[in-house]
């Protein structure tokens, strides 16, 4: 087995942490735990970006790391927690497919992405296959989360985790010029999505804030 230098190994290990958090998202059953896991994933991603900044000697990636940490690791989870509390969304995650089968499907997707990258022939100095496989797996797991979890908030979390996968690929690539801009753009997109749900839900609420409706269906938050 060829030796890969320590720097790459650590980068991959951090990438694997991001992936594990992706599995964690599929594994969690409570909404708050899902959001917390997402925050951890974002923090791991920030770490990955910072580490890439250090080994690639690319200071702009520090900015990316900071944005990811502040925005996705803290602000968005806090907002989501607030949203869950404020809107009285169900505490438990509603699944379209059980936890066990979802996890198994996840492993299948990871295997698929590994099979896909195996024949890729890129020099080890650019993106290594392992990091591509990791990033692709994170993206696929995000998609899986979006299709197997019913609630809107979990779907948004799935989408954001998918986006984390894209960012993981982007920060791992040497000389990717627009990483900072990309991360900002994605963040704005996510913010829009979040506010979208928020406004949607608020409108739904306002529509149903009549006294008579509240009397017939108390506590129905769906």
């Amino acid at each position: 087995m060829a030796h890969t230098p320590f720097a790459y190994n650590l980068a991959h290990l951090i990438g694997a942490t991001v992936l594990m958090m992706g599995f964690g998202l599929l594994y969690q059953r409570r909404m708050t735990a899902v959001i917390r896991t997402y925050a951890l994933q974002a923090m791991a991603l920030a770490l990955a970006a910072a580490w890439q900044a250090a080994i690639q000697d690319a200071p702009h990636l520090y900015a990316t790391a900071l944005i990811i940490l502040l925005f996705k690791g803290m602000a968005v989870p806090a907002a989501l927690q607030w949203l869950v509390r404020r809107l009285g969304i169900h505490r438990t995650v509603e699944t379209a497919l059980g936890i066990g089968p979802t996890l198994m499907a996840g492993v299948g997707l990871v295997a698929l992405s590994i099979v896909l990258v195996m024949p890729m022939d890129i020099a080890a100095t650019a993106i290594t296959r392992e990091s591509v496989a990791l990033a692709m797996s994170v993206v696929l797991l995000g998609l899986l989360m979006m299709i197997t979890r019913r609630n809107a908030v979990t779907q948004v979390v799935g989408f954001m985790s998918l986006e984390n996968g894209l960012l993981l690929a982007a920060v791992g690539a040497h000389g990717m010029p627009l990483v900072v801009e990309l991360s900002i753009a994605f963040s704005v997109l996510v913010a829009m999505a979040l506010f979208g749900i928020f406004f949607f839900r608020i409108r739904e609420r306002f529509d149903s804030l009549e006294l008579s409706y509240l009397e017939t269906s108390r506590g129905d938050s769906q």
């Binding site: 087995m1 060829a2 890969t4 991959h12 694997a16 594990m20 599995f23 594994y27 936890i99 066990g100 996890l103 198994m104 996840g106 492993v107 990871v110 295997a111 590994i114 990258v117 195996m118 080890a124 290594t128 296959r129 392992e130 496989a133």
Partner: peptide, 25 residues
């Protein structure tokens, strides 16, 4: 617990699968 340990089982499976990538480097 079934999810927890099933997760451990899948994690170990992933560990094997990931070896193939790094092995191929």
């Amino acid at each position: 617990i079934a999810d927890f340990l099933g997760g451990a089982l899948l994690l170990a499976l992933l560990a094997t699968i990931f070896l193939y990538v790094s092995e191929a480097l």
